[in-house]
């Protein structure tokens, strides 16, 4: 390499005649996604302002659907969904952080194995795992038997079809994708920084609060994003573990489309979910201010 004069990179680019290849690589997936992702989303936004007929929508401009979606039962459902997503995401983070910390700092040569163990369940059938929680949480089920045997609880356990069951299911389902970004940031903190903090007289807890936690901010933001967003639209877990009480936004939107056939109202509710997501993203962007990129 040393005896050959290296060509200037910019010159090499200019000399390359096939610039259309670069544009092709960008254009083909963009075009595909424009048709099967962006266009449908635009349809939803446009139709949320339309007049609903049964199973069809008349285009127009009315805020009637938003008025309905933001009043009475629908408003309660929306607020409940936001509250559930925020709480479950925070719980998920609380469970995930020590796990990620352990894998990044303490697992030693078992760290790869530890990560794989965390990720394997994420790839088994989501639906079957949630169904299995029905067996675990049911009266006379596995959890009841285990808790009674350990003398942590006595008598029957009535968890299925409660809020608690929905929280357990949500934390369960999204725990792996909360752990991964936390692991990534904790892993990237140079050990020299922690040693410097210790050398300057900080205790272990002081080091954690003053060095580790602030540097983990992008990972925390990504973890919250990756858990809270799907939770805002979750429709399977609440139905299987929460029973008929406490319907969340995902089910409410689904029933507007599948049962009531009120596409306009369903669209308005979907747009509300997107607005909640956008607010969440904006809030999390503030948390990562000062960091160049958010790891995905």
């Amino acid at each position: 390499m040393t005896f050959v004069k290296q060509p200037d990179r910019a010159n090499a680019r200019l000399a390359a005649p096939v610039r259309w290849a670069d544009h092709g690589f960008a254009a083909i997936p963009t075009l595909w996604l424009a048709v099967f992702f962006l266009a449908p989303l635009c349809f939803t936004v446009v139709y949320s302002f339309g007049n609903s007929l049964f199973g069809a929508v008349e285009l127009g401009f009315t805020l009637k659907n938003y008025q309905t979606a933001l009043s009475g039962f629908y408003l309660t459902t929306f607020l409940r969904t936001v509250q559930f997503a925020v709480t479950a995401s925070a719980l998920c983070l609380a469970v995930a952080f020590p796990v990620a910390y352990f894998i990044a700092r303490k697992a030693g040569r078992f760290r790869t194995l530890a990560l794989v163990l965390i990720l394997v369940p994420y790839f088994s059938s989501f639906l079957v795992r949630v169904m299995s929680w029905q067996i675990l949480l049911a009266r006379g089920g596995v959890l009841e038997t285990v808790l009674n045997a350990l003398h942590l609880h006595s008598g029957p356990l009535d968890l299925l079809d409660t809020k608690t069951a929905v929280f357990i299911g949500m934390v369960y389902a999204y725990l792996p994708i909360a752990i991964v970004p936390l692991f990534v940031v904790l892993d990237r903190i140079p050990p020299a920084l922690l040693e410097a903090s210790r050398d300057l007289g900080a205790s272990r807890w002081q080091t954690f609060y003053a060095v580790t936690l602030p540097l983990a901010r992008p990972g925390i933001a990504t973890a919250v994003l990756l858990t809270a967003v799907p939770m805002l639209g979750e429709m399977v877990i609440p139905r299987l573990l929460g029973g008929s009480r406490g319907v969340l936004m995902g089910q409410a939107i689904q029933s507007q489309y599948m049962q009531s056939q009120n596409y306009a109202l369903g669209s308005a509710m979907a747009v509300l979910v997107l607005i909640a997501v956008a607010i969440l993203v904006a809030a999390l962007a503030r948390l990562t201010k000062g960091f160049a990129t958010v790891p995905a």
């Binding site: 992702f37 449908p40 989303l41 979750e234 939107i253 489309y257 369903g266 669209s267 979910v273 997501v277």
Partner: peptide, 14 residues
Amino acid sequence: IVPEVVIGVSLLLF
């Protein structure tokens, strides 16, 4: 970051 249920209904409408 677009929830799946939103993609699902949007595609159905589309």
